[in-house]
């Protein structure tokens, strides 16, 4: 159990580091996917070690999470394409329309 959780933590932090360090928007999305997968590892691990006998919650959480991740990827990539079409660039540090 500790192994899965540690693996999940490491994967999550790798994804986070990618999101924080890379400039490219698609790379940020890749990092987010990795973080989601780290969460999925947790769902499966806790399902496997859960106390209820006939409980499939962890598995369904994982499946739904996958579905949400797919939706997020589709919309996120569409946004990236849209941004690229408007500004010819997807560098995250060049996008600062939200500057206060």
């Amino acid at each position: 159990m500790t192994f899965y959780l540690a693996l999940s933590v490491l994967l999550f932090c790798v994804g986070l580091a990618g999101v924080l360090a890379r400039r490219h928007a698609i790379m940020a999305l890749i990092g987010i996917e990795l973080m989601l997968n780290a969460a999925n590892i947790n769902f499966i691990a806790f399902w496997r070690h859960s106390s209820a006998a006939d409980d499939l919650s962890g598995m369904f959480w994982m499946i739904f999470s996958v579905a949400i991740a797919a939706a997020e990827a589709a919309v996120g990539l569409a946004l990236v394409i849209l941004v690229f079409r408007h500004r010819r660039s997807v560098r995250l540090d060049e996008l600062e329309s939200l500057k206060g």
């Binding site: 999101v19 924080l20 940020a28 995250l92 996008l95 329309s97 939200l98 500057k99 206060g100």
Partner: peptide
């Protein structure tokens, strides 16, 4: 001054 935090860069927010 407060708005300096809000530089519009998503990575800062994420940090």
């Amino acid at each position: 001054r407060a708005s300096l935090v809000q530089n519009g860069q998503i990575q800062r927010y994420l940090r």
